[in-house]
């Protein structure tokens, strides 16, 4: 088995990473998702696919050598086993339970609702101090009411 990241294939094949994702989605590249945003594919499938795409033998061998899973490493984790028959991502609900079970630590990400000046400041502060932030805004641009203001006291600066 070969374990790889999308970007690795993209670089080797000289295509955009979205192209690789599309290949996998369409089943052209017969890979299955595993943890850590990685995919696995059987060696034969991979070689066949690479040959179709005229990838030089040397590059191919290098890639296989680099990404081949050692026997010991290729132990399916509990999560992989549970979903090995379904190539989709594990359902978010169970994923959540998993994290709760695996760790007593809190989740290091924050959801901020509203992209006005208050939301923006909160997002910047959190991102600057080491948290992953999701900013959700109803409209197609951030800025809120402050962006609508002509000028602001006391500098009469444009509110932008």
């Amino acid at each position: 088995m070969i374990k790889f990241k999308v970007i690795e294939i993209a670089n080797t094949f000289g295509v955009h990473r979205n192209t690789v994702t599309n290949w996998i989605k369409r089943g052209v590249l017969k890979a299955k998702p595993v943890v850590g945003r990685k995919y696995v594919i059987s060696e034969n499938d991979f070689i066949a696919f690479a040959e179709q795409n005229h990838i030089p033998r040397r590059t191919l061998e290098e890639f296989i050598k680099k990404n081949k899973i050692q026997k010991t490493e290729f132990k399916l984790t509990k999560e992989d086993q549970g979903f090995s028959n379904h190539p989709q991502e594990p359902s978010p609900k169970n994923k959540y339970r998993e994290t709760i079970m695996n760790t007593s630590r809190p989740v290091g990400s924050v959801l901020v609702l509203g992209g006005g000046i208050a939301g923006i400041q909160a997002v910047l502060d959190l991102a600057d101090s080491g948290y992953f932030v999701h900013l959700v805004e109803r409209s197609s641009g951030i800025g809120g009411v402050m962006a609508q203001l002509d000028k602001t006291f006391p500098t009469n600066d444009c509110a932008m």
């Binding site: 630590r105 809190p106 989740v107 290091g108 990400s109 924050v110 006005g116 000046i117 208050a118 939301g119 923006i120 400041q121 909160a122 997002v123 502060d125 959190l126 991102a127 101090s129 080491g130 948290y131 992953f132 402050m146 602001t152």
Partner: peptide, 28 residues
């Protein structure tokens, strides 16, 4: 007003950070 809203945005960020301080940097 805006300054108060911006101040409290930093306050909220600090509060959230306090709650999650153990997980700081785990997802970035």
């Amino acid at each position: 007003d805006i300054p108060q809203a911006v101040t409290e945005a930093s306050t909220a960020a600090a509060e959230a950070a306090k709650l999650l301080s153990k997980a700081r940097g785990t997802l970035t």
